[in-house]
């Protein structure tokens, strides 16, 4: 921004400290994953890729990665479809009840996930969804809805209502209006929401601890168990891959936004 005050040394150094604080805990896993020791530690003598080899040779880790991926994919579809439909409905019917519903939709972000997990445990026991992939997809899908509602609502707020009038004036019915005008206009918001919903499911642990036991063993849960049972540095290698994957998704989100704004 031209004509604005330049940041001083205080603002610069606090900014740097905050950035380091955010990034350091993530960066530390990189050297740890390349340790030459037999336990979770920084490398002593030399760097080694043995734990990456270990990871790719291990069927358990691989199974967990695959499982986490499919669960996140399913949860994303669930969150995107219901979140988008809700956001469009709330946008069309701006009434008091809808505002209450909107607050309800954001609840999974506000309520501590452990509370949510306890509640889910009760219901899932009745419905026989415990330790089932479908159960985890439903749980993650529902808790991923707020991300989609927020991003899609933001996209809809920027939607010019005259475009709808124009489309109707030219004879478009509701479904043509949705498919050809509204959805293409809010697609960047939907994609953003999808990416966040995916990341949410991909690294969710608390709910999984409650509703899964032997059959469903997602990646965050395997890392968690690994830390509790042994201090195998393979976890650090997994963590690096996780970080790498997440950064890729965030870059994709940035690209989507840039395309929308540019």
């Amino acid at each position: 921004m031209e004509g604005a005050y330049k940041p001083g040394w205080f603002a610069r150094s606090t900014g740097l400290i905050v950035a380091l604080y955010l990034v350091l805990p993530i960066l530390i896993v990189l050297p740890v994953s390349m340790t030459d020791q037999r336990f979770l530690s920084l490398p002593h003598e030399s760097l080694s890729l043995q734990y990456y080899r270990n990871l790719f040779a291990s069927p358990e880790w691989f199974a967990s990665i695959a499982q986490s991926f499919w669960i996140a994919l399913g949860a994303t579809v669930l969150a995107v479809v219901s979140g988008t439909l809700f956001a469009i409905a709330a946008w069309r019917l701006d009434r008091r009840l809808v505002n209450l519903m909107r607050a309800l939709m954001l609840l999974p972000l506000i309520v501590p996930s452990i509370v949510y997990a306890i509640g889910l445990y009760r219901y899932f026991r009745w419905w026989d969804l415990l330790d089932r992939i479908a159960g985890v997809i439903i749980a993650h899908g529902v808790t991923g809805i707020p991300y989609v509602v927020i991003t899609v609502s933001t996209a809809l707020a920027a939607f010019d209502p005259r475009l709808e009038q124009a489309a109707r004036g030219m004879g478009a019915n509701l479904s043509q209006l949705l498919r050809w005008v509204i959805l293409p206009r809010i697609m960047p918001g939907i994609l953003s929401g999808a990416i966040f919903a995916f990341i949410h499911s991909w690294d969710e642990l608390v709910i999984v601890l409650f509703i899964a036991s032997r059959d469903v063993f997602t990646l965050p849960r395997r890392i968690w168990d690994g830390i509790n049972e042994n201090v195998d540095p393979t976890m650090a290698a997994v963590a690096v891959l996780l970080v790498f994957f997440t950064v890729l998704l965030l870059l994709a989100d940035l690209a989507v936004r840039k395309k929308r704004d540019g």
Binding site: R162, L163, A166, A167, R168, G169, N173, P184
Partner: peptide, 19 residues
């Protein structure tokens, strides 16, 4: 409803579909 009337309309600010 407007979609049944089949009138052409030019809007203030044009309302072209940006995409």
């Amino acid at each position: 409803p407007p979609e049944k009337r089949q009138f052409g309309m030019v809007f203030q600010g044009y309302a072209l579909f940006p995409h």
